[in-house]
Design a protein around this nucleic acid. Structure first.
Lengths: 120, 120
DNA sequence: TCAAAATATGCGAATGAGTTGCATATGCAG
DNA sequence: CTGCATATGCAACTCATTCGCATATTTTGA
């Protein structure tokens, strides 16, 4: 456990949004001003492999991260603002598992993103 | 309508899988041996913008394409083989729309991928 | 507590998918 | 068939991410 890693962990804890590596680098600099981008990338890869962090691709070229502790949820991306809304739906979860089963598979992971605009 | 574009279109028609740009480039060379990668990329971008092709990211770094004519479907990725299976579920479609609505949004697009292993 | 071994860091260079500038080639309208 | 608009090939570029390597920090174990 190094200074750099502590800084990244803290930056991550303080983030309510879904930051990308550059945002995390900026935020981590507050705790370790000399931290390098490469270290952020390396650490995020590590955390992802350890299952402590989830990596998402919301389609703008940069990977975005969130802590993995929370309960299972999916994302709705507000196309008007870029805002990301988390939601959870039990029926949906069940349905995913059930569809995989129907096809002869055990579900290991999944990804659901809804891209939507506010209803007027 | 140029030789290069015809070659790409033919390569795409002949593809039952979900080819990436490099695969398309290789396959298109059969019809136009001098075609450049840049042309494949440019043409795929064009086709995607025109809505004739759908672009996917199944998580291995290269975008993958399929013709958009088919009925709406989602993808299950067999983690053991990399094989991609298409499926359609009416309940699931309805549920996505309904969830977006519940959150106050009109669904514009969505992405669902199930990553799974064969049931033994 | 301290030195050696192990691991992580910072830097800049490298990678790899995708894009772009530009001179040339091709397609199409008249 | 000529002229102009558009597309192509090539090589150079972008941008996120990774890597090599020399140095710095942590950990281990006596």
């Amino acid at each position: 456990m190094t200074t750099a890693r502590r800084a990244i962990l803290r930056a991550l804890e303080n983030s309510e949004d879904h930051p990308d590596a550059l945002m995390l680098h900026d935020r981590a600099k507050e705790f370790d001003p000399t931290i390098a981008q490469a270290t952020v990338y390396r650490t995020m890869r590590l955390l992802e492999q350890e299952g402590l962090v989830e990596k998402h691709d919301f389609g703008n070229g940069r990977a975005r991260y969130e802590e993995a502790e929370k309960e299972q949820h999916d994302h709705l991306i507000n196309l008007s603002t870029g805002e990301i809304i988390e939601f959870h739906d039990t029926n949906l979860e069940a349905l995913k598992i059930e569809i995989a089963k129907r096809l002869g598979f055990d579900l290991k992971d999944h990804r659901l993103e809804l891209y939507a605009v506010p209803r007027e």
